[in-house]
Amino acid sequence: MDFQKITANLINQCLPGEIKHAYNDILTIVGPNAKQELLYSVEQYNIDNFVPIKVQDTPVIISKYNKQGSKYIDYQNSLIFSVDPIELVGLDIEPYQEKEDINVSELASLYESLKMHVSKKFAPEVTTIAVHPVADKRFALIVSCTKYNPSNFWNGNWKSCYIYDTDSKLMEGEAAVNVHYFEDGNVKFNSSKTLDQVQTSDDYIKVIESFELEFENEMQSSFNNLNELGFKSLRRRLPVTRSKINWGRAIGNYRLGKDAASTGL
C-alpha cells in the first residue's frame, strides 16, 4: 500500500469529533512534507461524513453535491466558500448567483419539509440539514447531527442522506450512527441501514420517518441480541456455585469435583 492509501485509511476511520487531533497526530508521525496529502484526505472525510462547516457563524453541510471546483455552495443562504478542513470554517465567502438549471422553489420546499421532519426528532442545537441538487429533479436531503462532549468522554454523530426524485417520486438513501465513549478505555458503537429505492407519493417525509423508526427498532433488537446471546454467554457474573472462588491449595477441589462428575463417580 502506498503512503496516500495508508494515511487516508487511518483518517477515514476517525471517530466523531476527532479529526483535528488525528490530523495533527499523523502529521507528527510522518512529518510536514505530507501536509497537502493529509489535508486532501481530511477534506474527503468531512465530505463523506457531512461534517458541518461554520460559514459566517452558521453551520453548513458540505457534500459531493454542493462542491463546485474547490469551493462549496450554501444554497439556503446563496453563498459560495472554500473550507479550512481542520478548523472546519468557511473561507473566501462570496455571494452565489443561482444557476438557471436549479429549481430553486423545489429546493426550498424540500428544505422546509426536511426542517419540519428533524425539528421534533433531533436535538435542534446540534443538527444541521441541507438540500443539495444532485441532477435535474433529483435532490439530496441530508441530515447531520454531531454532538461532542469530550469533557464527559463521549462524542457521537448521526448522518442520513436520501436522494429524492421530484418527478418519479422515487427515493433511496441511508442512515448511520456512530458513538464513541472513552472514559477508562475506547469503545465504539456504530450501526447503519440502507433504504432501497422505494416509490413514494408526495409523502416522502413519511417514508423517511418510518425508515428511521425501523432503523431504531432494529438497533434495539440488535442490542438485545448482542446482550442476551453474545455478552451474557461470554463470562458469567458468578460461577454456577453462586459464590466466589476459594483460592489457594483448595482450588484443586473444584477440579476433583468436576472430574468426579464427568466420570460419573
Partner: peptide, 23 residues
C-alpha cells in the same frame, strides 16, 4: 464485566438519544 455491560448497552444508547430523541 458490570462496567462493560453499562457502557456497551446503556451509555451508547443514552448518547445516541442525545442526538436523536427516543421515540
Amino acid at each position: 464485566r458490570t462496567m462493560l455491560e453499562v457502557v456497551y448497552f446503556e451509555k451508547t444508547m443514552d448518547i445516541y438519544h442525545q442526538l436523536k430523541f427516543a421515540v
